[in-house]
Design a protein around this nucleic acid. Structure first.
Lengths: 213, 213
DNA sequence: AAGATTACCCTACATGTGTAGGAAAACGTA
DNA sequence: TACGTTTTCCTACACATGTAGGGTAATCTT
């Protein structure tokens, strides 16, 4: 019997890694063919060459598998973005390149992301991504403002981003991404970055002004 | 047998109105007590004093019922917002009051909205609301810009708001609303409006500038 | 290599889902 | 009121869900 629920990342046991990979791969394959809501646990398990019972040993339902499959990609992506500190020569170029990398990563796994961010998607994953992006935005703005004498809210480490501009920005990014994916990514990532950057820029400037009173 | 699927609003038959109302009321009651994902069709039907089979005559699942219950409220709310035309004496006050009305309406039905916009919520409804808000934002910006000689995109009537700033704004609003609801509405609607208005203002100004080249 | 661990699979079961057909009752209309 | 129409309800069924227990085999550790 399986008692401990692994948090997320690559476990020690080979068998676990294999089943995780097999299930994720099966889901990605199935999500290209049919709606996420039409995909049953039995389907995923069979395509993965794994018993249905084993599926439930790892995930509670298909949504949780999808969330796990996306979470790693999203977290990697956000973590890989260059932090635009005050040492950057061209922060605008940095930011647009980060945005372009974001949209490019979405396009690379467009099938999965479209299924998960669209109308038949997973509210759980959207919520997780929004929190993750909001926290990243919060950190980026603080780093960009970069003065240690700026007014800093009480940062409880568990629940950082209770910050209206950060949640605002995160929701906006998800909205644009979901819309773009649903339309089949008609514009290239670079153009999406060019279109959205001015909007973020306006918000950032505003936020920094507010922080500086 | 029921063959035609009613689009949305109040049907002619008394029985249909009664069952719609009973089901919506039952859902609203149940959603205060437990997670949306834990509510079964049988539960809703029983609490509504309606057979399970009748439920399926009207809705495909619980999410669709929730979507229907919220859609009317959202559409009424958006439709009731005052259009800030060039005839307004104080457009800033108009906008903040619209925002405050929005948040107040959310708070009024906080139980339902929190359940539907949160992690256990309905991606379908979120998608619908985003489209609806994006279309409203698109219209508002066009009305605010108000010059007939402005560059206007080819407006196909079916699919109006393929507009990055509009989707951006809609997503942002949903993000803020979802976060606020999930935290139990700690700030009053007026304060939320005061906090978010500057962000929208920055986007609007930017968008109008872009339209004017 | 030997033993302890634990992931995987099988079976079984109670419950929920979604669909279908048809009888009975409520409704709108003439 | 009397009629045709539409809704509601009942029964039934095939399938999916989520959980539990226990046997077997792969893996990790020493």
């Amino acid at each position: 019997m399986v008692t401990t629920r692994e948090s997320s990342t690559s476990s020690g046991d080979r068998r676990v890694r294999r089943t995780h990979a097999a299930l994720a791969s099966a889901l990605i394959q199935l999500v290209e063919e049919q709606d996420l809501s039409r995909i049953s646990v039995a389907d995923v398990a069979e395509h993965a060459g794994v018993s249905r019972s084993t599926f439930y040993d790892h995930y509670r339902d298909v949504h949780e598998l999808a969330e796990a499959a996306c979470t790693a990609m999203i977290d990697d992506l956000i973590g890989s973005l260059p932090a635009p500190g005050p040492d950057s020569a061209d922060p605008v170029r940095d930011a647009t390149q980060s945005l372009e990398a974001f949209f490019a990563s979405l396009a690379e796994h467009a099938g999965l992301y479209r299924a998960l961010l669209g109308p038949q998607g997973s509210a759980r994953l959207v919520d997780h991504i929004r929190r993750r992006i909001a926290a990243a935005v919060y950190d980026l703005v603080r780093q960009a403002a970069a003065g240690d004498d700026l007014p800093v809210r009480d940062g409880s480490p568990v629940d950082i981003p209770h910050d209206v501009p950060a949640v605002f920005t995160a929701g906006a990014l998800i909205g644009v991404a979901a819309d773009w994916l649903q339309r089949g990514c008609p514009l290239p990532p670079a153009e999406m970055a060019a279109l959205t950057w001015p909007l973020f820029s306006a918000l950032y400037r505003l936020d920094i002004d507010a922080l500086l009173h």
